[in-house]
Design a protein around this nucleic acid. Structure first.
Lengths: 231, 231
DNA sequence: AAATATTTGTAGCCAAAGCAACAAAAGGAC
DNA sequence: GTCCTTTTGTTGCTTTGGCTACAAATATTT
């Protein structure tokens, strides 16, 4: 098959052998579509029961509700989207998708993906576990992010983000893994306001030092206190 | 089986016949546990691969990170939780669970639920579709709520909520389906600030009237404009 | 219907955070 | 290296919206 590499690379097909993938595509209902650069592929609110796998090119998922588009995600070979709508009662897409480059995508009918079990039970189990894992992990992400967004108080948002990263990484030098803009968007605050508070925490309270995405925690206890104290 | 009614009532088993349910419970790995009133059942951050179905009693899901607990959900006979962690790579529960009354619950091993396909293919398909639907719908909910939370501007939050309900219900008299406190929490703002802006929209701008959860839209166009304008 | 509890409406004060603007670094391309 | 772009640091001004407090209206209970 021509796009073997991309399919093996796709999270949806994690753990599948080459044989599995061949079997899968004999059983599944799918179609390949090509789009040219700039073309709109899917509109927010559109209803679909198909999962989309990018075979070649580059797609952007974005919101455009208001003014300038907000890029949610950039997708290339092996990335996929649409699992979250394919099995919902209200299968309406939550974002627009457009081709940033000439692109080739594979649409897989969501329901037909579940029936591969009729041809191979182990294969079915792998695919279904992948689907469930992908959806579950997306829920974790959303709930995690929601945790930060709903916190009130700049200081606490920042402290909690850094403290959580510390717990995750275990060292006093933590890597945020994002730049200031991304961080501000993640916390749902404005960058200057965030930077201002970070400066205060650095200069007045000596909680940490920072340069770019690297934070050096200086006063873990103070940080912990702010991050975990009652509202 | 003793708890047949509750199982038939559980979304996870939607569409299953009585026979299906019996078959399922022959194949699945499950255990019944009783808790007494006030007892803590699961702690935030706890890792589990089991789905929990409430057979009898009343459980509360809540956050307690900071000061007074925030009730997320009250669950009774037939409700279930834990699907979102059972299949995740990082299966850590996002909330605490405690028994508000003496309660009986059923724990079902998440993985064993997927293997029922080995005994009955149609049954398996039903259960899996339910699982996928539940997870997908939860994603929709979270993304929907996130849409409101991240909007900046009290006025726009309110307008969008009302306008969306109008689109949903199709009449100029819309029912928010929640009280002021719930609404404020949903939009992640303080109730008085929200009320203040609602008053302005009512008195100054004549956009709508309201009493309790019922909104009478007076100027749909103005409302639409605020709800959909660029940031 | 009286009494109590809960939910709403309303006001004023003030701190938090948004925004525009710009300076300073840092990174990349050539 | 030099030029150009992107990211970060920093400030001051202004608005939003949080909070307390209380009054009024509704529900709920007895």
């Amino acid at each position: 098959m021509k796009f073997f590499r991309q399919l093996k690379n796709c999270e949806l097909f994690d753990g599948l052998t080459d044989g599995d993938i061949n079997k899968l595509f004999d059983a599944v209902e799918a179609r390949i579509v090509k789009y040219s650069r700039g073309q709109l592929i899917a509109k927010e609110g559109e209803e679909t029961r198909e999962i989309c796998v990018i075979l070649d090119g580059n797609l952007l998922a974005y919101h455009a509700k208001s003014g300038k588009p907000e890029i949610l995600r950039s997708m290339t070979d092996g990335d996929c989207y649409g699992m979250e709508t394919a099995y919902s009662v209200a299968p309406s897409l939550g974002y627009n998708v457009a081709a940033a480059l000439d692109s080739t995508v594979l649409y897989i009918n969501g329901l037909s993906l579940l029936t591969v079990g009729r041809t191979d039970e182990t294969l079915s189990e792998k695919v279904i576990k992948n689907l469930l894992r992908l959806l579950s992990d997306k829920i974790s992400d959303l709930e995690n992010n929601r945790g930060y967004i709903t916190i009130k108080g700049m200081r606490k948002k920042i402290a909690k983000l850094i403290y959580d990263k510390y717990l995750e990484q275990g060292t006093l030098t933590v890597d945020l893994g994002m730049n200031r803009n991304e961080m501000a968007k993640f916390l749902n605050v404005s960058r200057p306001s965030m930077s201002r508070e970070m400066m205060r925490m650095r200069d007045n309270d000596k909680m940490f030092d920072f340069r770019k995405g690297i934070i050096e925690i200086k006063d873990l206890e103070a940080l912990r206190k702010v991050a975990t104290e009652a509202e």
